[in-house]
Nucleic acid binder design. Structure first.
Lengths: 165, 165
DNA sequence: TCAAGATTGATGCAGGTGCATCGAGTGGGG
DNA sequence: CCCCACTCGATGCACCTGCATCAATCTTGA
């Protein structure tokens, strides 16, 4: 039951950690240099912009983004502070609320996608053939499934780009 | 020069981000539940334990671990506070110092490797054949090389396990 | 020899994250 | 109808990170 991890698994683990942190750093750095906020903001704006009427319950957002509740709460605070979203009262459940993306929010999301997609191309697309990217996705998927308790819904889309233009 | 990223690249990117954060969370969680400190401590202890006489200059540690200077500085503070390492004066360069791992540090590193390797097996090894792990490593390597400025030395070993028993 | 510049390591500050907890509100069983 | 358990969202705290900057020391070169 408790085998020693193969060297191959360990090596894959190490590369997974190192490569993603490196690539993520590069991408975040590019965005920052272009004067944009962190990727988490983009993810939230994207989720909101794709919601039926541009609004979501914080709980929904939390589940979409797979981040903890308090994290969502504070991320929303920041978006609201910057005028990228606004809180709206939820009439059917007075504990809750709706968060609605503003025009400024939609616009920022679109502008960020420009820089973001360029960074993805630069750091991923240009280094991998489509076929290899597909292989990589497949291998990663096997790692991702049911890692631990998986109390969260099956679907998700943290950073999936919007209609892309 | 500025192609749009292929869907495949984008999808690989998303999975890379999501899967690693998920797997990392799981591993860190397991370690935490076993009462161990964060992985970064392990990495530092490992590097120190592998150094010729159990000591390194902070600058070396920083380069090995690929983390920023201030981060190293504070990590060392914490290790020293916990008695896992100690600072020693550097006679040949009075700006600098040596950080030396203590017996407690070596012992903790070994104990952590037990839990750590079990977690790697659980979340990586058990989900991937050796062959697939090798494929994954290969694909990831292509992403990792020269991502951006790469001002750091070629070698590195953040989490590579110690002699393993 | 000495001044200018580079390198080493520490630190104040702002912001982000995890954890625990809280208050408000909902809803289901007695 | 009311109480209890649960869900929703906010927040105080500790800690950790990035950034800018600092003091001390070393190195270089005129």
């Amino acid at each position: 039951m408790k085998r020693k991890p193969s060297t191959e698994a360990t090596s894959a683990w190490i590369r997974l950690m190192r490569v993603q942190s490196r690539v993520l750093d590069c991408v975040e750095q590019d965005l920052k240099k272009a004067g944009f906020p962190p990727l988490a903001w983009y993810d939230a704006l994207l989720e909101l912009s794709r919601a039926p009427s541009g609004e979501l319950r914080p709980v929904e957002l939390e589940r979409q983004m797979l981040i903890p509740q308090y994290s969502t709460s504070r991320l929303i605070d920041r978006l609201v502070d910057e005028g990228l979203a606004c809180r709206r009262e939820c009439k059917i459940d007075k504990r809750g609320q709706f968060v609605e993306i503003t025009e400024a929010g939609r616009e920022l999301q679109k502008r960020m996608w420009g820089a973001y997609s360029a960074a993805i191309e630069k750091y991923v697309g240009s280094k991998l053939s489509d076929a290899d990217a597909v292989k990589l996705s497949g291998l990663l998927d096997r790692l991702g499934c049911s890692c631990g308790e998986m109390k969260l819904p099956p679907v998700v889309n943290v950073t999936e780009p919007s209609p892309s233009r």
